[in-house]
Amino acid sequence: MTQTSSIDPKVTSRPTRTSGRIARLLYRNEGLRGYLLMSPTLIILTVGVIIPFLILLVISFWTRAGVGFDTTPSLANYARVVNEPMFGILLGRSFWMSGIATVATIAICYPMAYFVAFHVHRNKMFWLILITLPFWISYLLRVFAWRVILGYEGVINSSLVWLGWIKAPLEFLLYSPTAVIITLTHAWAAFAILPLYVSLEKIDKSLLVAATDLGDGPVARFFRITLPLSMPGVIAASFLIFIPTTGDYITPALLGGPDGMMIGNLIQAQFGSINNWPMGATLSIILMLWIAAVALAFLYLTRLAQARIA
């Protein structure tokens, strides 16, 4: 072989040895290699998510007996949930409240996402960070802020009294479903922007040009092109808000009062002050089932929306 240069051949010669059996197995089997790398994460999530859920499921078939549990499997807790109206009312109220909060959040965020996607041309990243920043501030503190605003002696009441518009503070502001819904909407707005923005940004601008060329004005263009094409984002955002808000604990606990309680508060109470873990487990399982059902519905809706687009 001709010499390229003065490089000493032994310097760079590499042994073509085959490494150990494990290395060989990993080299040939990409799936195994992948799962080996993921295994710490998967083990932790199994121990921290799957096993706890299975235990929760088992406990939900137990019943409380004094301070301990009666571990004979029974459907008693589930029967109670079906028969006692209190549970149904609370579940229904949770879905209803988070449903309204979800719709309100989407309605408020959509124009903002639209603005950033279509009317911000420079520093988009700055805008996105500015909008999503509050989401990273402690959820507890964001809820707490609304207590400051809506409180009996809070910002709104004291301002109105100070301005002389009302004589006595309005009592319905705090400790009401409205307070919870307002707070949930505010708390999740920063989060809803992202999926909405992404779906709007993805829209091929030439479609809008084409629609205009074919005679659509801005309004018709929005309803015939932009809105349908951004539907996947709307659905994703709804899902991402609806699920966690349904099971929220902090907001109703701090702002809900008796009328604004949600299912999360009841679950917490079962594990806390009421000390009926089997009942708490049952409610958690029901909430999970509900989430699974909603997830499937959203999945179906997404498919539908995408099928219409494609």
């Binding site: 706890p52 235990i55 929760l56 699920i243 679950i267 594990f271 708490g280 487990a281 909430l287 999970m288």
Partner: peptide
């Protein structure tokens, strides 16, 4: 999934 559910499940 609401953290609450993870919390009570882990507690259990």
């Amino acid at each position: 999934i609401p953290t609450l559910i993870f919390g009570v499940a882990l507690l259990a």
